[in-house]
């Protein structure tokens, strides 16, 4: 009995880890006032870049760094769009997803010569996987503290509540927002790294499977706090693990796969309206 529980527990952590990273990335961006729908694309970008770099260099740790960098770059792109060009953040995020997912599919053919999936590449191994899992939980705590007690954290929160107040105080809220998104993208990228070379050792088209959107739901559940979002991510990870475990039981696999999404919908109906997003969330800031 306990062996099965242990397996479920471990699987929960494994399934939850990419969600935690993505959700933390979402929280940081949103607290600064930028809605990040592009988490899915950042996951995919990080996942693919890691596999491509691992393939070319043979070094999994280097590949992991590359994946993080890719996520950070995508975050930067979204940040610039949201601040300098003042585009609608939600639509831009959707565009980013298409862009990143399409770009990964495109580069897949370029790098590996065939569509659909890459070859197996050097991965992070069991030790690497465990490190990333632990790191995710540590990151949750660290980000929570950073937002609460550091100067930068205060600036991020101010950028999300009233960017003009921050501007008056002599700090550029646009710069802060871009910084927050770069950090957020890096985190999501790390989540993607875990997906491709942490849990497995390859990249396949569509492997992100909507996790970026579940992470968004986790951000909302968690009331835009790092610890709350992590808890929500663990909750969803549990459902994903459950689906995997119950595969043999005759329950249609599609139903099990749909569980996290149904749970997210139910919770959005239940929780929504009570939590409040940062006041300037989603509103582009304009210097006159």
């Amino acid at each position: 009995m306990s062996g099965e529980l242990l397996a479920l527990f471990t699987l929960t952590l494994v399934k939850a880890t990419p969600l935690i990273y993505a959700a933390l990335g979402g929280v940081v961006g949103e607290r600064a006032g930028v809605v990040n729908i592009g988490l899915e694309g950042m996951l995919a970008g990080g996942a693919f870049t890691a596999v491509a770099v691992s393939y070319k260099t043979g070094s999994a740790p280097l590949a992991a760094l590359a994946g993080v960098a890719c996520g950070a770059a995508l975050g930067f792109l979204l940040g610039v769009a949201a601040t300098r060009w003042r585009v609608d953040q939600i639509v831009a995020g959707t565009g980013l997803n298409l862009l990143a997912l399409g770009g990964a599919a495109y580069a897949l053919v370029l790098v590996f010569g065939r569509p659909g999936a890459s070859f197996a590449v050097p991965a992070l191994g069991l030790r690497g996987e465990a490190t990333l899992i632990a790191l995710a939980l540590v990151a949750a705590l660290v980000i929570d503290r950073v937002l609460a007690v550091t100067s930068w954290g205060l600036h991020v929160r101010a950028a999300g509540e009233n960017p003009r107040a921050l501007d008056i105080a002599g700090i550029d809220p646009l710069r802060i927002r871009v910084q927050a998104l770069v950090l957020g993208g890096a985190l999501a990228g790390l989540g993607g790294v875990f997906l491709s070379i942490g849990e497995l050792d390859l990249y396949s088209d569509g492997m992100t499977a909507g996790r970026g959107f579940i992470a968004l739901a986790a951000v909302i559940f968690g009331r835009w706090t790092p610890l709350g979002a992590t808890g929500a991510a663990l909750f969803f990870g549990f459902f994903a693990a459950l689906q995997f475990t119950l595969q043999q039981s005759g329950i249609p696999s599609e139903l099990m796969q749909a569980l996290p999404y149904l749970a997210a919908l139910a919770a959005l109906a239940g929780f929504a309206g009570r939590a409040r997003a940062p006041a300037a969330d989603g509103i582009p800031y304009a210097r006159e």
């Binding site: 585009v87 609608d88 639509v91 831009a92 565009g95 997803n97 298409l98 599919a105 053919v109 989603g282």
Partner: peptide, 29 residues
């Protein structure tokens, strides 16, 4: 040329055009 380039281009178009007039007002949420 792998045809996924089309998805990339479409994504970029959405990304850049996200500043359309119907979208830059603050949406009540």
């Amino acid at each position: 040329v792998p045809r996924d380039i089309v998805a990339v281009v479409e994504g970029l178009v959405i990304f850049v055009l996200a500043g359309r007039q119907y979208l830059t007002r603050t949406v009540a949420r």
